[in-house]
Simulated assay, not measured.
Amino acid sequence: MALEDAAHEMFRMAKQYGDADLLAAMKKIEQLHIEADRLTGYADEVRDGRILRVVDRT
Rank of each mutant, 00 (worst) to 15 (best):
G49R: 09
Y42N: 03
D56N: 11
R38L: 08
Y17G: 06
E45G: 00
V54H: 13
Y42P: 00
R50Y: 06
A20Y: 02
E4P: 01
A14N: 05
A36M: 10
D56P: 01
V54Y: 13
M1P: 04
M26S: 11
L23V: 14
H8Y: 00
A14S: 15
A36P: 02
A43K: 07
A2M: 03
G41K: 04
D21F: 14
I34P: 00
M13A: 14
Y42I: 15
A14F: 10
A6S: 10
G41R: 08
H8Q: 10
A7R: 01
E4G: 06
L39D: 01
F11L: 12
M1Q: 07
A7T: 02
L32Q: 02
I29N: 02
L52P: 00
L22G: 05
E30R: 12
A6R: 08
D56I: 14
I29C: 10
L39P: 00
A43P: 00
I51T: 05
G49H: 09
T40C: 01
V46T: 03
A7Y: 01
I29R: 09
H8K: 06
R57N: 07
R57K: 03
R12W: 04
E4A: 12
D19Q: 12
A24Q: 07
A43N: 03
A24C: 07
A43C: 01
A25N: 09
E9R: 13
M10R: 06
I34K: 14
G49N: 10
K15D: 15
L52Y: 00
R50L: 14
R12E: 07
I34N: 09
F11P: 00
A20H: 02
K28I: 03
M26K: 11
E30D: 13
Q16S: 14
L39I: 09
M1Y: 07
A14D: 12
R12N: 12
D44R: 11
G18H: 08
A43M: 06
A36H: 10
L23F: 09
I29Y: 01
I29H: 02
E9D: 11
G18K: 08
R12L: 08
I34H: 10
L22Y: 10
E9Q: 13
H33Q: 11
G41T: 09
L3K: 11
G41M: 08
A2P: 04
D19P: 02
M1G: 15
D44H: 12
T58M: 04
A24R: 12
V54A: 11
E35F: 07
V54D: 09
I29T: 07
R12F: 10
A7N: 02
E45A: 15
K15V: 14
K28E: 08
E35C: 04
I51E: 02
E30Q: 14
G41V: 04
E35V: 11
T58S: 13
V55R: 13
L52A: 00
I51S: 00
D37E: 15
Q16C: 11
R12Q: 04
G41N: 15
G49S: 09
I34E: 15
R57A: 03
R38V: 05
T40K: 08
R47K: 08
A43W: 04
A25F: 08
A2L: 07
F11K: 03
L22P: 01
D5F: 05
